[in-house]
């Protein structure tokens, strides 16, 4: 035990900067990908509900198409998706290496994931409230903006947290093919150089990042939920 602590103390100055940068890279990838996941997944998830039978704007064909696309995105293993979109990644970022390049597959993976969670949250909104809004003469955009989204907000935030957590693990996978971040460190230093200390340090840091996202999310949900 003391031997381990001594080793940590001895090597810390050398490890700290790399681990810190790795953490920042992970957070950078996750945050940007989450942003794109929201930009793409939120409208997609809402559409999956409103185009359904009995929804605001029923459109069975459109819904079947959207649902199909989402299912394809959801069923691809992330590691396969990452390889599959390499040329798109190069087109958008000019490279296939590094955290910025990793944002492309991460976003593409997270959009359908978040869309399904949005769909579930929006579907939970009380139909009676939607009907009441109709009775008050509210139009469809108003109902989406002022009824569906605010009423679903706690569920949406929970979905976002789940997406963030999943993105942390995806980002570690991205590290395996040169995406940067904590996963990259774990593979390079921990696995390829058999350096257990690096391996465990990245594990601890990943857990810390996930915990931080979850706790912050729970706090926000508690603040905004009035059920």
């Amino acid at each position: 035990m003391t031997a381990l602590l001594e080793e940590i103390a001895r090597r810390w100055p050398e490890m700290a900067p790399e681990l810190w940068l790795g953490t920042l890279d992970t957070v950078y990838m996750v945050v940007w990908s989450a942003l794109f996941a929201v930009l793409g997944g939120l409208p997609l998830g809402v559409l999956l509900v409103t185009t359904d039978r009995g929804g605001l704007t029923p459109a069975p064909v459109l819904r079947a198409v959207l649902s199909g696309i989402v299912n394809v995105g959801r069923s691809l293993p992330f590691i396969v998706l990452m390889v599959a979109v390499l040329s798109l990644t190069r087109l958008l970022t000019g490279t296939t290496l590094g955290p910025t390049a990793a944002i492309v597959p991460l976003s593409i993976g997270a959009i359908p994931f978040f869309a399904r969670l949005v769909e579930t949250a929006v579907r939970e909104v009380d139909r009676g409230v939607v009907e009441a809004a109709h009775a008050m003469g509210a139009g469809k955009p108003t109902i989406v903006a002022k009824v569906l989204l605010p009423e679903a907000l706690p569920g949406l935030v929970a979905g976002l947290v789940m997406t963030l957590v999943t993105l942390v693990s995806y980002s570690a996978m991205a590290g395996a093919i040169g995406g940067g971040g904590l996963g990259d460190i774990a593979i390079r230093e921990g696995y390829q150089r058999f350096d257990d200390l690096y391996l465990w340090a990245t594990v601890v840091l990943l857990v810390v990042v996930v915990q931080a996202a979850q706790s912050l999310g729970d706090l926000v949900i508690r603040r905004i939920s009035h059920r």
Partner: peptide, 24 residues
């Protein structure tokens, strides 16, 4: 459309299960 929605505003409705927005 819009003319029907405008006309609905002249009619109030009360619901069995209240149908209040829980977020407001």
């Amino acid at each position: 459309g819009p003319r029907l929605r405008a006309a609905r505003r002249r009619i109030g409705m009360v619901h069995q299960h209240f149908a209040l927005l829980s977020s407001r």
